[in-house]
Structures are given as structure tokens and as C-alpha cells.
Amino acid sequence: MSGNLLEVKAVRMHFPIHGGVLFRRIATVYAVDGVSFNVKPGETVGVVGESGCGKSTLGKTILRLYDPTGGEVLFEGKDLAKMGRRELREVRKDIQIIFQDPYESLNQTHTVGRIIQEPFVIHGVGTKEWRREEAKKLLKRVGLPESAFDRFPHEFSGGQRQRIGIARSIALKPKLVICDEPVSALDVSIQSQVLNLLLDLQREMGMAYIFIAHDLAVVKHVSDRIAVMYLGKIVEFAAAEDLYKAPRHPYTQALISAIPVPDPTRDLSTKQVLEGDVPSPRNPPSGCSFRTRCRFATERCAKEEPTLADAPNASKGHLVACHYADRLDEALKERAKT
């Protein structure tokens, strides 16, 4: 064992597109295309990227809600991708997920009490009485009144429903929780409440999170390390603080620059605006997938795909996939001087 809770190794998730008269495979969506990273016990790894970058697919592939088309997902050293049904069920006690939309991810016809007890029932944990008591404790823990037990999801607001989803996901005291855009559907004042709850639960229970979101400010707030994804690949991976203070990939730089900052005195003339749209994952560009929008792109970028490797002159563990990562480093220094 390497001391990692989860090791994701060169995972691929390619979805076939069938069509035509014979319904043959006519194209492929390269949703996740060779992603590797690891998660240590108790830490939070953030995954950030724009729509279509494969971040949600990655989360679902790790949990094996999709069967990966390549690579390995090692949880405590065992490959989830190769597990049989029974073994998988056993390990899913330790890996849980929180979804984005608390309106759709809770069964509307079940009471909140039943929803929260479901993990116990599925995994045959405890007696009926114990389950009830435990579910009530969980409700209290996530900040809901005990009276919620006999009510239905539609009686609750978005933020409260997300709390119900969180209660369900922590019921079995998992070692890893995949949070897939857990706060993006919530109002600003509710978002901070839920983020605080997640941080608090992690401190108390020591589980690891994979926190997937499109909002870099939110991801940075909860993560120890962050992976930036673009078109199915990780383009940069670094400690949260390093990623923000010294981004090495031109995409990360542009992403940080594009975030509107709640400070009207910010100088907007230095703001980078990326041209064009994200290319389709059905037909990614050759070489570096970001080259079509990159201001540093050269011919080399079209021919040779950059690998995710140690960034030059950076902290240990700071990885970047760019042929010109060193140049960007200089560009940053240049900017700091002026």
C-alpha cells in the first residue's frame, strides 16, 4: 500500500455513439481520456472544469456507476473496475456520492426517514430500532429538525434537501465521498452553510472528498489539492494555494482570470478573455486539446500531446501538461514585476 486511499490510473471512459441504418458505432465521445491521480485518507481533492470537460463522468466512473473503458481505479489497493457485484457492493459502503440536484436525487415518494435509513437497509446494518435512532441522529447532525423524519422531500427547500442527501451519504461512515457539484444549485447564502457543513463533517469523521465543481473559488475553498480538467484530461494538478498563486497551465490562468471577483476596484484591463468555445469531446483537437484557444500554441502543440509532468520551478507535486510550462512561469514573473 502506498498510503493512498484511492488511486486512479489512466482511467478512460469513452462512450460510443451509434447511428445509421445498421446502428453501428459511428463516433466516440472521449469523456474521460486517461486521467490519473490519487487521494489520501482524509484529504479533499477538487476537480474543476467547464461543462463537457468530463469531471462528472470521472466521478461516476470512480464509483463504477459507469464501467470504465480503460485504466484502473484502486480503492485501498483493490481494483474497482474488476470487482464482481458482491465485492463492489461491499466496497460501496466506503464510497458514497452527493449529487448536484437535491430535487432529483431523492425519492419523492419516500419519507426523509426512509431515505436516510436506506443505506442501512441495503447493507443490512443494525436492527430496525437502531436504524431509526441513527437516522434521527444523522438528521440532527446535518442541521435538520427531528420532525423532518416523517416528512417528504418536497416539503423542504433546496438547501435542506441537500442536507438530506448529505445525511444519507454519511450514514455508513464512508472513507470517501464524491461530491458532484453539491452547491451549484443553491443560493449564495445557503451555499456557504452547506460548504461549512461539509468541512465540519470531514473534520469530525475524517473522510476524504473528491469535490467536483465548475466554480474554482468554491473548489479552492474546500480542497487540499486541485485537478483542472479540460476535454477529458487533467491539464494541471497542484496544491490549492499553489494553483491559485502560481498557475502553470494557460487554461488555468485564463480560468482564474475569468472569474468575476466581488471587488469593483479590480483592474479589468488585465483580464484574459479566452476566444471561442470548448471543442467537442467527440472530435478533440490533435496534440494538446487546449491549443485551439491557447495564446502560446505553436505547431508542436498540434503534433505532440503534452504529458502531465512535474512543473518546472514549482513545489513538489505540482503537475502540468504543457510544452511551454516554463514560458508561462516567466510570463507570470514578468507580470509580477510590473
Binding site: 479533499t44 456557504s192 461549512n196 473559488a217 475553498h221 480542497s223 494555494e241 491559485y244 472569474i259 471577483v261
Partner: peptide
């Protein structure tokens, strides 16, 4: 004031508790 304080910002210390507005609309 509560709204402004409760937004996570890129320059805040990671993994710290955010000030919140209790309750809901």
C-alpha cells in the same frame, strides 16, 4: 454584509469556515 462575507473567494484561506447567514429566505 452577510451576502458579501459568505461568498468563497480565491484569496481566502482554504478549508476555513465561511461566515453564513443563518436560516433561509
Amino acid at each position: 454584509k452577510g451576502l458579501l462575507e459568505s461568498i468563497p473567494r480565491l484569496d481566502t484561506e482554504p478549508k476555513t469556515m465561511l461566515p453564513t447567514i443563518e436560516g433561509m429566505v
